[in-house]
């Protein structure tokens, strides 16, 4: 609770204790540096990973974004990180929180993240949540993408299975399959034909092949 309060203070622009980030030294104007330093301190105090915040500042500087735009982007990221931490809990790794923030930004709900975490147990969430964001970016509806991730988790899928699924779906979409159907069929193949099929031949077109399935996978 105290951590979230500190983060809220930082997002509101209230100065807290400021620490130095060597990679940003001498590269920002004083006002921007002060804002970023405040956000970094507050994120640290709230138990959030600070590396993606520094990374976002560096990206903005390299892309020659205005200071206001950099600060706005960092504030949004800190908010997403805070929401992901609140959903995944204090024991979640930094990588999981970062991937969770990205998934939230992609449109996933906190309930979806909690469901995936519940099914995955102690296994890391970084790769499954990254694949969730990737599927959404490729045009898979977020509900379908979340169901697919949960479906694989229930089958004990490994990180390699998730990346294999992502490559298979990308190949199917490239071959003309509808994104939602491609993701659903690939996920079904995992549990029906074994994991070897994950990166194998393109999934059959819905309603035409032996693995024909509905457009959305059955919810657990």
């Amino acid at each position: 609770m105290r951590q979230l309060l500190l983060l809220a203070l930082a997002l509101a622009g209230v100065p807290v204790v400021r620490a130095q980030e060597p990679r940003l030294e001498g590269r920002l104007d004083p006002a921007t540096r002060a804002s970023v330093a405040t956000l970094l301190d507050s994120a640290r105090a709230a138990g959030l990973p600070t590396e993606p915040i520094v990374d976002k500042v560096l990206e903005g500087m390299t892309k020659r974004a205005s200071p206001d735009r950099i600060v706005a982007a960092v504030r949004t990221l800190a908010t997403d990180l805070g929401a992901a931490r609140a959903t995944l809990g204090p024991t979640a790794s930094d990588d999981d929180v970062i991937a969770g923030a990205s998934a939230l930004r992609a449109g996933a709900s906190g309930e979806m993240l909690a469901r995936i975490k519940g099914v995955r147990g102690k296994a890391g969430l970084s790769v499954p949540l990254a694949v969730l964001s990737d599927l959404v970016a490729r045009g898979v509806p977020v509900d379908t993408a979340a169901s697919v991730i949960v479906h694989l988790a229930q089958g004990g899928a490994s990180d390699a299975d998730y990346t294999g699924l992502e490559r298979g779906v990308a190949r199917d979409i490239g071959a003309g399959a509808p994104p939602g159907a491609a993701a659903a069929i690939r996920a079904r193949i995992v549990t029906t034909d074994g994991r070897g099929a994950l990166t194998g031949a393109p999934a059959s077109v819905p309603g035409k092949g032996p693995n024909a399935s509905p457009k959305t996978p059955a919810r657990p």
Partner: peptide, 23 residues
């Protein structure tokens, strides 16, 4: 490669997911 869902600075990024070892 797919684009990142966020584009904070008007120049979109791409995303690659490097797979880990099997669990």
């Amino acid at each position: 490669a797919p684009r990142a869902v966020t584009d904070d600075f008007g120049a979109p990024n791409s995303v690659i997911i490097v797979g880990g070892k099997s669990t």
